[in-house]
């Protein structure tokens, strides 16, 4: 499984985190994810997720002209979004801890069986 595929499942939480850093727009979100080492095969996949976040009331948007011409949609977290981000962080910590433990365990098991 590629990193890009794994990212799909947690993209919603990652976007909440990126938007939580301050008002931002679509292309910039992809850049910020990339700065953290999270690259995607299809950058466009953030937009369906952004639509969902909007529908669930986690983000609010404003449209302003961009420096290079067309209108640009900027995203900010709502209070519900902040709460969801905090909840996501908790879930992620539990998951990361559990997966980390499992990976360590499975690595050890493999070396034993090889002996």
């Amino acid at each position: 499984m590629s990193t890009s595929q794994m990212l799909k499942g947690v993209l919603e939480g990652c976007l909440l985190a990126v938007i939580g850093m301050g008002e931002t727009y679509g292309y910039e979100m992809v850049e910020k994810l990339g700065e953290h080492g999270l690259t995607m095969v299809s950058e466009g996949s953030i937009y369906p997720v952004l639509l969902r976040l909007q529908k669930e009331g986690y983000v609010m948007t404003v449209t302003r002209p961009s420096p290079n011409g067309p209108r640009r949609k900027y995203y900010r977290l709502t209070e519900a979004g902040e709460a969801e981000l905090a909840a996501f962080k908790q879930r992620w910590d539990v998951l990361a801890e559990a997966v980390g433990q499992l990976m360590k365990g499975s690595g050890g098991h493999e070396t034993i069986s090889k002996k």
Binding site: Y25, Y27, V30, Y47, L51, T63, S66, N68, G69, P70
Partner: peptide
């Protein structure tokens, strides 16, 4: 309209 504008903006960044 909103989605199309958003993708247009993204495509311009990509193509530049």
């Amino acid at each position: 309209d909103e989605v199309a504008d958003e993708l247009r903006d993204h495509l311009q960044e990509l193509e530049s």
